Simulated assay, not measured.
Amino acid sequence: MSLLERLNSDMKQAMKNKEKDKLTTIRMVKASLQNEAIKLGTKELSEETELTILSREVKQRKESLHEFDKAGRQDLVDKLRAELAIVELYLPKQLSEEELSEIVKETISEVGAKSKADMGKVMAAIMPKVKGKADGSLVNKFVQQHLS
């Protein structure tokens, strides 16, 4: 089942169950996917593109969450946390820290990185491997740790 089909199915279920917040969030994600398809001029998006869009949606919500938290807007923080939980349901299973650390070590040895100067090469090689499965800032942190 494609992501769009899952979203449509879950949207119908949310309507039946009168889950207004879930319905709104699913509609926003679906709109993002459709807007990207229109922008690219295609009927269907590749799985990789869908992952990129979902990751973007998660990142936007996390950034907004941080800003609202700093501003003391607990009502918006709670709303965004609920949205984030819903969007994350559509992402692939996230890698554990141990799994991510192992992938970082393997990639560093593949690339032949020795110091922090090679950070760009390592990040360029590792990000396609963990796309949608790990947060970029966490990957960055692990790469820095292993290169120092």
Score class of each variant (00 low, 15 high):
Asn140Trp: 10
Lys129Gly: 11
Asn35Thr: 12
Ile38Asp: 10
Ala113Pro: 11
Leu91Val: 03
Ser2Asn: 15
Leu95His: 03
Lys70Met: 15
Pro128Met: 07
Arg73Val: 13
Leu76Pro: 01
Ser2Cys: 07
Asn35Leu: 14
Tyr90Ser: 00
Phe142Gly: 06
Glu44Gln: 12
Gly132Thr: 10
Gln94Pro: 05
Glu36Met: 12
Lys141Leu: 04
Met123Gly: 09
Met119Asp: 12
Val122Thr: 10
Lys22Pro: 01
Arg81His: 01
Lys18Asn: 08
Ser101Arg: 09
Leu33Gln: 03
Gln145Glu: 09
Glu50Asp: 08
Ala71Leu: 13
Val104Cys: 04
Leu91Tyr: 08
Asp10Ser: 13
Leu45His: 08
Leu147Arg: 03
Glu47Asn: 12
Glu110Gly: 11
Glu57Cys: 03
Ser32Val: 04
Lys121Ala: 15
Lys59Glu: 12
Leu100Pro: 09
Ser96Thr: 15
Val122Met: 08
Tyr90His: 01
Ala134Ile: 06
Leu100Gly: 12
Lys59Tyr: 06
Glu50Trp: 02
Leu4Trp: 05
Gly41Pro: 12
Ser115Lys: 09
Ala82Cys: 01
Met1Asn: 10
Glu67Ile: 15
Leu54Tyr: 00
Leu7Gln: 09
Val143Met: 06
Val111Pro: 11
Asn8Glu: 15
Ser2Met: 07
Ala124Cys: 05
Val143Phe: 04
Thr25Gln: 00
Arg6Val: 01
Leu33Thr: 09
Ser64Gln: 10
Lys20Thr: 07
Val111Ser: 10
Ala134His: 05
Lys133Arg: 15
Leu84Asp: 01
Glu5Pro: 09
Lys105His: 11
Thr25Ile: 01
Ala117His: 07
Ile26Ser: 04
Met28Ala: 12
Gln60Cys: 06
Arg56Val: 13
Val87Arg: 00
Arg27Lys: 15
Gln144Val: 07
Glu63Ser: 12
Val139Pro: 02
Asp135Trp: 02
Met123Leu: 14
Ala134Asn: 08
Lys79Leu: 06
Glu36Ile: 11
Val143Gln: 09
Asp75Gln: 04
Thr107Met: 06
Val122Pro: 11
Leu76Gly: 01
Leu54Ile: 00
Leu84Asn: 02
Asp78Ala: 08
Phe68Trp: 12
Leu65Thr: 02
Met15Trp: 03
Thr24Glu: 15
Lys59Val: 03
Ile103Asn: 06
Asn17Ser: 09
Ser137Val: 07
Val130Lys: 09
Ser32Glu: 11
Met119Gln: 14
Asn140Lys: 15
Leu23Trp: 04
Glu48Phe: 06
Glu102Asn: 13
Ser2Phe: 05
Ala31Cys: 05
Val104Trp: 05
Ser109Glu: 14
